[in-house]
Design a binder for these strands. Structure first.
Lengths: 240, 240
DNA sequence: TAGTGGTCTAGACCACTTC
DNA sequence: AAGTGGTCTAGACCACTAG
């Protein structure tokens, strides 16, 4: 007898995890909501409590849910505190991290340029929103950034006020949860435009952050390029 | 009856994990070595196999051991591939990451300056080694860096050749395993000295990386300040 | 074929929160 | 006191590697 090599083998708890992610994608479970207890979920799906536990632990590791002993398991929210911790790595050299304030410079819509289509994975002729804003840390303009979004994903966003906490808005108004982001950092000299926005001389060194934000379903939903003054701030990176 | 609040409660599997880390610190388990099987460890310590498993899984998450199904659990090594993946975040804009070559500029020993004592947690009067080197990526000088080490931890290092892969040497010759690192990034303009080392004009923008490397026992064993050209490279950071 | 880590289950008990 | 997630155990079976 030849043993059958199960090539498509995927552990049960990962299948359960995927099913749970699907519920998040579809909005059946929404941010802040309490999930059913492990026992209930296990009974519903027809697996043991331990398997449900492994699936939920995986989601907790991915910061998609928060587990609180004695209380329950909750869908993670994009509140400022969480974003500050998870997605905002620019902190003061001395003192505590704060969520930056924003001043909108311009909002526009147009046909996606080839670069934008490439980064966001959009088809020819797709339209994008472009938000340019200056963000201040401790009252001082410190970040000049351009946020590029697929217009199709965020209908009506350009008409209203652009909120300060974008990720909370993606989740709350559009049901899109940013699960992770990839950043590429470079050191550059500021051009005249950005220097003026930040109130420094042209040529001033700045940290260039090129970020792609990726939603639960793996789709890139935002391209953000930020130029940051790092005279009194630094980008924090933990390696382990 | 009042239930006793166990303030110092620490799960068994974490205590087991700590005991295993201790073996690593003491060199009873050395890089590359195969650990006893889960069953043997469980029998030796007197806990269940599941508890040993949780402890080993924790160590694997911390990149201190590597688990290979069907083969065993091994102490992680500081080979170039691992360092490249874990501790070296500067990659070419196009193409594959490579381990950089090094050219030593100077090696010196002296009394630790106040900053150095502060960063490395050294007492007054302690001595340090300072290594200045230029590292090349793809044949092009791209990183000028100063590595500062407590002389007491690395006796005789200054006399011999300074190897390219420092972390492998810390582990192999001195039994010191770098477990994690904290990096602070800034954008700066290069001064004349560094610009000359890297073959660019003074004032050229560079990515400043200020790294503290922390050993298994939590002690800071290295302070490294690197100035990196990012014209053809970027620093990769994954947020999740 | 034997030995390893990986998965899955079932059940007992503990720590924490809330009522 | 009840309900939640967290720990610990014991055992069965699976997937992978090596001799």
């Amino acid at each position: 007898m030849t043993p059958v090599p199960k090539l498509g083998f995927r552990p049960l708890y990962q299948q359960v995890r995927d099913a749970f992610v699907q519920r998040l994608v579809e909005g059946r479970w929404t941010p802040g909501q309490a999930l059913p207890s492990e026992i209930e979920l296990a009974a519903e799906i027809g697996v043991s409590q331990g398997t449900v536990r492994k699936a939920l632990d995986a989601l907790a590791t991915e910061n998609l849910v928060v587990r609180r002993q004695g209380r329950g398991t909750f869908v993670a929210e994009h509140d400022e505190a969480r974003i500050l911790f998870q997605f905002f790595k620019l902190v003061p050299d001395a003192g505590e991290a704060r969520f930056p304030e924003s001043r909108i410079v311009s909002v526009s819509e147009g046909n996606a340029a080839p670069v934008e289509r490439d980064v966001l994975g959009l088809p020819d002729g797709a339209r994008v929103l472009r938000v340019v804003r200056v963000r201040s840390l401790g009252g001082k303009p410190s970040i000049a950034e351009t946020v590029t979004l697929p217009a199709a994903l965020f209908p009506g966003l350009a008409e209203g006020d652009i909120p300060n906490n974008l990720y909370a808005t993606y989740a709350g108004r559009y049901g899109i949860t940013v699960a992770r982001a990839q950043e590429k950092l470079k050191a550059v000299a500021l051009d005249g435009t950005d220097a003026a926005l930040l109130g420094v001389a042209p040529g001033h060194p700045a940290l260039l952050i090129d970020r792609q934000a990726i939603a639960l379903d793996g789709v890139t939903v935002e391209w953000r390029v930020s130029r940051c003054l790092t005279d009194e701030f630094h980008y924090m990176s933990d390696l382990r």
